[in-house]
Amino acid sequence: MKMNPLKVIKNGVITENPILVQCIGLCPALATSTSAVNGMGMGIAAAAVLVGSNVVISAIRKFVPDEIRIPIFIVLIAGFVTVTQFLISGFFPELDKSLGIFIPLIVVNCVILARAEAFAFKNGALDSLFDGIGTGLGFTIALTALGAARELLGNGTIFDIKLTPAGFQPGLLAILPPGGFIALGIFMGAFRKYQERKAARQGKPEPVHAAGCAGCAMSGQCGAAAKGGGN
């Protein structure tokens, strides 16, 4: 199946934006978006791992038995994460310090496993490359925007450039943990509004929103858990 690279990329950035539409990979998004630089650093690190794992997984997909594919994906992803971890601590020690344990935690970032499962395992290496770039870009843009908004409100700066007048009293709450939750909630709501408007303008039915971790690779079991679980 031949796909248009631009369409695949646009799909990752807007139509299926991992944070705002699929609502996966929220932990790093909340934790590392305390400033635009941190958000962007995390986004790029995760995108690099995603592109690498997507390409390798789609290249070896014919040799991987179905039953043990998830452990194989995880080992591959962990390998890429270890490499990324070394590169960051070697070249950007500052970023390494502020991202902290969220660099090793890229392994369990559901965006990467979800793309491996939903796209790379079913498509060719070139398409998977573009899918990785698109989804990674969507992740990075969402994190940078979230980081910029929180940094502006909580510190009066964006990318460490002062933008607010001298009398501005920064609201520290925005860069503390609660600010992350609230800012992401508002971002997500605003994006949904935009989608609804767009759908209405084009006369399409309203988009169905992800109820939780539905986009996650484990959603099969998760859905089962949400329905049949509990006592």
Partner: peptide
């Protein structure tokens, strides 16, 4: 969850019913 931001996926995905939440 509320200060370290770990485990948000199940926190948001499996918290619609309290029975299921307890099991998780």
């Amino acid at each position: 969850i509320l200060s370290l931001f770990l485990g948000n996926c199940p926190f948001l995905g499996v918290s619609t019913k309290s029975g299921t939440a307890k099991g998780m």
